[in-house]
Amino acid sequence: MTDIHPAAMVAAGAVIGEGCRIGPGCVIGPDVVLEAGVELIAHVMVEGHTRLGAGVKVFPFVTIGMAPQDLKYKDQPTRCEVGAGTLIREGATIHRASVGGGGVTRVGANCMLMAAAHVAHDCEIGDGVILANNVMLGGHVHVDAGAFIGGGAAVHQTVRVGRLAMVSGLAGVTNDIPPFGYVFGLPARLVGFNRIGLLRRGASRDQLRTLRLVHSLLFKEPGEFAGRLADAEQRFGHEPLVMEIISFVRDPARRRQLVRPGRMAAPELGGVDEENGDGA
């Protein structure tokens, strides 16, 4: 049965699904839809045209669907959506879209947003993404499925983070990160690929060896980048993971340049082994 605490405020018009639990101090706006089994522990505010998918769990002091931090926004009916099974920890904020994007801020299914993470207007977050504590995503950021963004990292507006990419803690990301890329530092530099994340998701040793060769070819070898990209396609185009990287690089919808290659900080300064490129 649905359980709504007497100290919660649920506006007329809100749609509350079967088995939802709404704790004390929660405020639910009139255009909100909570699908079955959503749990708002306490002191959660959900506003605007916002839908939380089945089984979403939200910890205290989270706000979802509030107006974007965009001076051009004049209370137009834009949307916010959170996919099924996503976990949102204390103090996180997810803003609804502005009028300058696609009209929706979207967080995918089975994501985890840790404490004080911020998802700005018009962001598109894929399934299974993890945002660690205090991550800051600017407006119109796209984070593809399975990516991990470390604590305190800041991602500039309109940046795209590729599938299964990893961003180190405290990184400052101002350019696009290709799929499986591993970035480190301020400003963030591409220092390897997410080997551990790929292994955990079933990549073979042969695929990892191929990706290492492609990473070196594209981001370490001299010469014109377009030529190296064509060379990678000719030599390794039979490998779907390689073609995923090439398709990402060539995508005309991208609005920023690729992140520049760099080197990991020395281990004695807190860096991670560059040779392994270990990720999440």
Results as ranks from 00 to 15, higher is better:
Arg21Asp: 00
Gly13Phe: 01
Gly100Val: 03
Gly152Ser: 01
Ala7Gln: 13
Gly237Lys: 02
Glu47Lys: 05
Arg200Trp: 04
Ala132Phe: 11
Phe225Val: 03
Leu40Pro: 02
Gly139Lys: 14
Gly185Asn: 10
Val214Pro: 07
Ala120Ile: 00
Leu258Phe: 07
Lys72Asn: 08
Val32Ala: 07
Arg250Thr: 07
Val242Asp: 12
Gly197Lys: 12
Gly152Trp: 00
Gly277Cys: 01
Asn194Gln: 09
Val27Phe: 10
Lys220Thr: 09
His238Lys: 13
Val62Ala: 08
Ala92Val: 04
Lys57Pro: 00
Leu258Trp: 06
Asn194Lys: 13
Pro261Leu: 01
Ser98Asn: 10
Gly150Tyr: 13
Asp70Pro: 03
Gly172Ser: 15
Pro30Gln: 15
Pro252Asp: 03
Val33Cys: 03
Pro77Ala: 02
Ala165Cys: 02
Val33Arg: 15
Leu164Ala: 07
Met114Lys: 10
Leu87Tyr: 14
Val161Phe: 08
Cys123Ser: 08
Lys220Gln: 12
His49Pro: 02
Phe59Cys: 07
Ser168Tyr: 07
Ile22Asn: 06
Ala203Ser: 11
Ile22His: 04
Glu233Asp: 13
His95Lys: 04
Glu90Met: 06
Pro252Met: 01
Asn133Ile: 06
Ala67Leu: 11
Val38Lys: 02
Ala14Gly: 07
Ile246Val: 15
Ala265Ser: 14
Gly101Phe: 03
Thr210Lys: 05
Gly172Lys: 12
Asp176Phe: 02
Gly185Trp: 06
Asp273Arg: 06
Leu164Met: 14
Val183Ala: 12
Ser247Met: 00
Arg209Asn: 10
His95Phe: 02
Arg205Pro: 05
Val143Lys: 13
Arg189Phe: 04
Glu275Pro: 01
Gln207Lys: 03
Leu229Trp: 00
Val141Ser: 04
Gly172Phe: 11
Leu170Val: 14
Glu221Leu: 10
Ala8Cys: 03
Ile177Ala: 09
